[in-house]
């Protein structure tokens, strides 16, 4: 099995480490590769879009290199039913509908998850927080929110996996998983349960 982490910008290395450790714990064989160019995602069984700046990551995945974009490859993979996970900025890019900040910055979205997101829903960095949350199918997870977005509307066929206050902060639509927080940072204290949940989606 090969998991690709879209490595153009953000906390790529943390996702690579978390996915590798999760794979080990599940006894799965395979590799986790970070990629900055088209050509790798299309040959993978699962893709992770990390946290970072959504405006920057969007520009970089939609940029054409030799007539191809990473964005197209992600869309093709999703169509084949392979699991795609986006965290924080990654969630924004996966979603179908943005907010006025997304429009103002002309950020292109992949539109794979039928939700409407709000960027920086909880405020600026000062308001960033961590809190234990019940994550359906995983248990209580220490969720780290950093200038995080939130899901404000959910379309049909989208399963809500975690909520904080009035916001949906984790949701799944078939093979597409979007989280407003950063499970990859939990690798700091050895917790990779969310990545294990994601890897278990591969067979689905």
């Amino acid at each position: 099995m090969r998991v690709a982490v879209v490595g153009v910008q953000g906390d790529v290395e943390e996702h690579v480490v978390a996915a590798k450790l999760a794979m080990e714990k599940l006894g799965m064989e395979g590799e986790v590769v970070a990629t900055r160019k088209p050509g790798v995602v299309e040959k993978s069984d699962a893709v992770i879009i990390p946290g970072g700046e959504s405006t920057t990551i969007s520009k970089l995945i939609f940029r054409e290199v030799n007539g191809k974009t990473i964005a197209e490859e992600i869309l093709t993979l999703a169509e084949e039913g392979k699991p795609i996970m986006g965290t924080c900025a990654g969630l924004i890019l996966l979603s179908k509908h943005g907010d006025e900040q997304v429009e103002k910055t002309k950020t292109k979205l992949l539109g794979l998850l039928d939700v409407k997101i709000r960027r920086n829903a909880f405020g600026r960095q000062r308001e960033s927080f961590q809190v234990p949350l019940e994550f359906k199918g995983v248990g209580v997870v220490e969720a780290i929110f950093i200038r995080a977005p939130a899901i404000v509307e959910v379309g049909g066929g989208v399963e809500i996996l975690a909520k904080f206050e009035d916001y949906v902060v984790a949701a799944r639509q078939d093979n597409v998983l979007g989280l407003a927080f950063h499970p990859e940072l939990n690798v700091e204290f050895g917790d990779t349960r969310v990545h294990e949940y994601f890897l278990n989606m591969v067979e689905c």
Partner: peptide, 26 residues
């Protein structure tokens, strides 16, 4: 339910995490 007494701001993880989100950037 959310245990609000466990809601924390400005931890080392959050502060270092913010910086990690800048990686590969200008």
């Amino acid at each position: 339910m959310v245990e609000l007494e466990k809601l924390r701001f400005g931890t080392e993880l959050i502060k270092r995490g913010f910086a990690k989100m800048q990686k590969g950037g200008v």
